[in-house]
Amino acid sequence: MERKVVKVVMAKLGLDIHWRGVVAVSRLLRDAGMEVVYLGNQFPEAIVNAAIQEGADVVGLSTLGGNHAVLGPKVVQLLREKGMDDVMVIMGGVIPEEDIPALKAAGIVEVFGPETAIDEIVACINANVRQVG
C-alpha cells in the first residue's frame, strides 16, 4: 500500500513575528518528502491540540523572539501530559547557545540556528522520528 510519510506540525511560537524562516523551512521539508501542517502563530496549548488532531510525528517550533526558554519546554510538557511522548519536538531560530542545554534537558530533541542547512534538519528528523504508521 502507500509508503510511510512523516507528518510535521510547524508553528511560530507565540507572538514572534518573523514568518519567512518557518515558511521557507516548511516548504523545504515538503521538498524532502514530508507533509507539513503550518499553523501560523500559536501558543503551546493550541500547538499541542493541533499536533494531536493531525497525528503529527514531529512538532517544529520557530522563534526569533526570545520566548523559547519558557514556551518551548511547555510544548513538550503538554505533549507528555496528553500521552504523546513519542512526538519529536525540534526548535529553530535565534536561540543563544547557552540556552540550548536547558532546552534539550526539557526534552527538545534539537535546536537549529539560523545557518542550518535543510539536510541537517531532515537528517535529524529521520534519525529521531518514531516509526511511522
Binding site: R3, V5, S26, R27, L29, R30, D31, A32, G33, M34, E35, V36, V37, Y38, L39, G40, N41, Q42, E45, A46, I47, N49, A50
Partner: peptide, 17 residues
C-alpha cells in the same frame, strides 16, 4: 517529492483550542 505543505489551519487558527 511526495511531500506537502498543508496551510489551511492558518485560516482556522482560532479553532485550534
Amino acid at each position: 517529492s511526495g511531500g506537502a505543505f498543508l496551510g489551511d489551519r492558518v485560516r482556522m487558527a482560532n479553532l485550534n483550542s
